[in-house]
Amino acid sequence: MKVVAWTEYCLGCGLCEIYCAAQHDGYNGNVLKIFKKGRPMHRSRLLKAEQGTWLNTCMHCTHAPCINGCISGAIKRDPNGIVYVDYERCVGCYSCVMLCPHGHVRPWSERHQVLKCDLCRDTGLPSCVANCPNGALQLVD
């Protein structure tokens, strides 16, 4: 499973990032609260390249370099194939950042750990997909 982003219909509005942030860190999708009270940290990133905007997100690769290269065993795959970070274990060495061919895993400098898409595994349909106003994001197998 992964989210695929079609540049053809990506508006670059940035709602994916906003809802992504709100869905994590215990904010349960409450955009207002995380932006007013918390520290919104979106996992997936909207890139603005010359050819247009697109959401840079995790491919949950079959042979995930981040899992294999993680020095602490913090990056794991759950039974549904979702690659996620176990924050109890991540020490913030950024090996995974260096290894991700998609440039998706990124530093969470404040906590000395890393951020990556977990397909909102605790809540169902990924928040970015659910909230993309133009169907430019799709969850595929």
Binding site: L11, C13, G14, L15, I18, V31, K36
Partner: peptide
């Protein structure tokens, strides 16, 4: 009280 300066309106 609700605006979070996310800039979606600006971009849209």
């Amino acid at each position: 009280e609700r605006c979070i300066r996310c800039g979606v309106c600006v971009r849209q």
